[in-house]
């Protein structure tokens, strides 16, 4: 595996005519995590999209090495397919196998849901399925948008465990969140409504 790295250098984000944040710099290397916090609409999801390469930064550069796994608000799982097959499709694209899917389902405690069509899943179960997709992909860089939303306490513990394992294996995590995720030693990145400079 290539040494994972994610570096923002003086990145600014412009959405429409609005400047969401500017001059944001941070570096995450293997095993490190960062927690992205701030009020709604401050640009947390946009920052994750920039990190994922889905949005070009208005100013500044983003360096990434290592494959990226993104858990966004959208599930990107085929509603009609059984959960196992829906995850299997992404595992195939990620070069992972059925054993990786099984391991990920197990890690999120939804192994029993593998034959259930995705459209039948509850909000929390769907969220766990998305996290299972991230785990199964074996990508070193995890970008998580509100990963704890809709999860019960037991699932939050499983998520914390999965993130700890991932970092132990040299992975990077960048998570936007409003709630504690058990990433106590993570670097805080607090985005503030514009006119105040972001603190990294």
């Amino acid at each position: 595996m290539i040494e994972a790295r994610l570096a923002f250098d003086k990145v600014s984000c412009l959405r429409g005519d609005r400047l969401l944040f500017e001059g944001l710099s941070f570096v995450l290397s293997a095993g490190q995590a960062a927690l992205l916090t701030g009020p709604n609409g401050v640009g947390k999801s946009s920052l994750l999209r920039i990190a994922a390469g889905l949005l070009p930064p208005a100013v500044g550069t983003v360096e990434r090495s290592g494959r990226i796994a993104l858990a966004a608000e959208t599930a990107a799982l085929d509603a009609r397919l059984p959960l196992g097959d829906a995850l299997g499709f992404w595992a195939k694209l990620d070069g992972a196998g059925e054993s990786d899917v099984a391991r990920a389902l197990d890690a999120m405690g939804i192994a029993n849901l593998a034959p259930v069509p995705v459209r039948m899943l509850s909000t929390g179960q769907r969220k766990r399925a998305v996290l299972a997709r991230v785990i199964a992909g074996n990508a070193p860089v995890w970008l998580l948008d509100e990963p704890g939303n809709g999860l019960d306490t037991a699932s939050l513990d499983r998520l914390a465990q999965a993130m700890a394992d991932h970092r132990k294996a040299g992975g990077i995590i960048l998570a936007a969140t409003h709630q504690p995720l058990g990433l106590d030693d993570a670097m805080p990145i607090a985005l503030k409504p514009h006119n105040e400079s972001p603190v990294a």
Partner: peptide, 14 residues
Amino acid sequence: AESGVLDQYCVRGL
């Protein structure tokens, strides 16, 4: 596009 599948393709470098 709505379910984020196209984004996921892009994230995977396709």
